[in-house]
Design a protein around this nucleic acid. Structure first.
Lengths: 190, 190
DNA sequence: GTGCTGACTGAGCGCTTGCTTAGCATGCAA
DNA sequence: TTGCATGCTAAGCAAGCGCTCAGTCAGCAC
């Protein structure tokens, strides 16, 4: 039995509740009771319900961005860079499908200044995908008509995963990641 | 200036509000005021806020299912069937991106019996995609390792569109539909 | 005119929401 | 022993929620 700080118990409870029912359908009483505390305890450790969402969303976006950056920095070969990008991006969403659902679906619940911040991380992720495709096209490894559109499409595979993926389902994160990486490579094959 | 029935004005207002802020963040007062009515007027034409969502979600699912069925019935050639499936599915989501967002993102807000009904339509759409792939593989037109996984992937392109597509943006429904249909064909190329 | 119907509103009910406040128990330092 | 910080709770406040209800009003039949 791992020991969790009260603060972290509340974070975990919020992840479960937000992922299951969405931010607006989740009450502070629900989060607190999942963490085994009274409603008021939430405000000892977090500034507000939206502040809790912001922390989850920001950390999730930064983790996903880090995964993407490490993936494309790990190789110089265009096909290998794209394979790792889609593979690791997809695997992260499968391994953190609850957090991923919050990252992808609860943007509109963020306060404007918090939305502006995470929108920047999202642009960085999309720009990284475009850069990998452009580089591959320039070096003759890929054949792509519409680079921005194809970049959106390869990321869509990992993003849309959080809509249907079940942690205890038949597909492992690794197997979906392998499948989607292979499909992405076919999309750009020269 | 087209004449709309009061009932349809409320439906349009609900589509806009639900798509913009989500079901739980939308108030009945907001829907009514967008339709130029008092809050009580909503209940003259609709049984409840959830009933309004159900009507939108059911009609949207049935329209999407109809688009998918007509697409695959329009040809006997595997590649043409898949091309039409992804093209028309994507174009429908682009042309009806507000309704599409409600169809794809507000499932959890439906009452259990309403969710069960639309889940059936969703299964029919996914089964149609699997059938097109299986038929193409059996006839030697496609090379697909994981038919269910690839079926999910080709539908994900159209589904995820509603997350970022803007009706007044640079991409027309037809251009995104063409792009995604071409990418899907590449995914299964023998 | 009279009677009726359908569309609509103003007022508001009962309830839940996010969040606050006052206060209590524990543990540590001096 | 005293003083204080930390972590928490019971109680509850103000606001907003979905929804209801009594009543108004225009239009139509006769």
């Amino acid at each position: 039995m791992t020991q969790l700080t009260p603060r972290h118990r509340l974070v975990r409870a919020a992840v479960e509740a937000f992922a299951e029912k969405g931010f607006h359908a989740t009450t502070t009483r629900d989060i607190a009771s999942r963490a085994g505390m009274s409603p008021a305890a939430l405000y000892v450790h977090h500034p507000s319900k939206e502040g809790l969402l912001y922390e989850l969303s920001r950390d999730g976006h930064l983790a996903a961005l880090d995964v993407v950056r490490r993936a494309v920095d790990g190789s110089d070969v265009p096909a290998e860079r794209l394979r790792r990008l889609v593979h690791d991006f997809t695997r992260w969403h499968a391994e953190h499908s609850l957090t991923g659902r919050i990252v992808q679906y609860e943007l509109t619940a963020l306060a404007p200044e918090h939305l502006a911040e995470v929108a920047g991380y999202r642009r960085d992720i999309e720009a990284t995908a475009r850069e990998v495709l452009e580089d591959g096209v320039a070096r003759g490894a890929f054949s792509v008509d519409d680079v921005p559109g194809t970049a959106l499409a390869v990321l869509s595979l990992g993003v849309d995963l959080v809509r249907w993926y079940l942690p205890d389902g038949p597909r492992t994160p690794e197997s979906v990641a392998d499948l989607y990486a292979a499909l992405a490579l076919r999309m750009v094959a020269a």
